[in-house]
């Protein structure tokens, strides 16, 4: 579990100060997917770079399982970075080895794993992201965009992190690749018992998989809650230049018309099924 306590970070550039994040308080629960949503420049990326200590805050603290990550006597920064695996935006640009296998092995090697351990971790990580065995001996630059991204995520998973933080994991992928990668992330969360932090600017993307949503705007967290709680606040979200998923909009309209649609429907498929089952078709119209 990660607890973020009144975290503030200010960028200083040639004497100009910009508050990137202000007084952030957030708890990231174990074994769940937490989504951080905000439009470009809302401070999401700055916030998550604090989670594994890449950036130092001006004030505030982060507790990882109750221990402050800045307390070098109790936990080393290297260990923090292993426990909290951070996958940057467009992670495929960090691939550098001759083969995908070697690239995934980079992190476990840095943490001094034995050869057998490395081998085991590489295969497990590749399997977890849905990367075929036959791709492991290829050069990472031969893979397609979606596969490259999977390889890069596997490179972080191979550290066996307790928390996996992903910055816009689906950015720049086609709709099919997008859905697939989000599906794999959901699977990783439930099967490997890893907590996931998902950063995105699209509600559509996180609606179906997130358990908890935190909405950021102007460097602050404006609201947190379950998807169904967040999606009722359409007006506030629109003021923050965010939109709720289209299907949720339709269901909200139905609710206004007096039809009691259950709160936990977020995907188009579920909604279609429910509507077909519960709303009678009027043949005369």
């Amino acid at each position: 579990m990660i607890e973020i306590k009144s975290l503030t970070h200010t960028y200083k550039n040639n004497g100009v100060r910009t508050d990137a994040i202000k007084d952030i308080n957030l708890t990231i629960p174990d074994g769940k997917i937490t989504a951080i949503i905000g439009h470009t420049g809302s401070g999401k990326s700055t916030l998550i770079q604090h989670l594994n200590g890449l950036l130092k805050p001006d004030s505030g603290d982060i507790l990882l399982d109750g221990i402050s990550i800045y307390d070098s006597k109790k936990i080393s920064m290297k260990e923090v970075r292993r426990k909290v695996g951070l996958v940057f935006q467009y992670p495929e640009y960090q691939l550098f080895e001759e083969t995908v296998y070697k690239d995934i092995a980079f992190a476990p090697k840095n943490y001094g794993c034995t050869k057998e351990e490395i081998d085991e971790r590489v295969h497990l990580a590749a399997k977890a992201v849905g990367l075929k065995e036959s791709n492991l001996q290829k050069s990472p630059f031969e893979l397609s965009g979606g596969q490259k991204r999977k390889a890069a995520i596997a490179g972080v998973l191979a550290m066996k992190p307790e928390v996996l933080v992903l910055d816009e994991p689906a950015a720049g992928l086609d709709p099919f690749g997008r859905e697939k990668i989000l599906y794999e992330i959901g699977k990783i969360c439930s099967e490997e018992a890893i907590s996931v932090v998902l950063v995105s600017h699209s509600m559509e993307e996180v609606a179906t998989c997130a358990h908890k949503i935190a909405v950021m705007h102007g460097g602050e967290i404006k609201m947190t809650g379950s998807p169904s709680e967040i999606f009722t606040k359409v007006k506030e979200l629109e003021q923050m230049r965010l939109d709720i998923p289209q299907i949720t909009k339709i269901l909200n309209e139905l609710r206004l018309k007096g039809i009691s649609v259950p709160e936990d429907i977020f995907s188009v498929k579920e909604a279609a099924n429910w509507i077909l089952k519960n709303i009678p078709v009027n043949k005369g119209n």
């Binding site: 951070l86 640009y93 960090q94 980079f106 992190a107």
Partner: peptide, 13 residues
């Protein structure tokens, strides 16, 4: 800067 950060996130020193 970005690549350095990404590699440090994978335990590079």
């Amino acid at each position: 800067d970005k690549i350095m950060k990404a590699q440090s996130a994978r335990g590079a020193d």
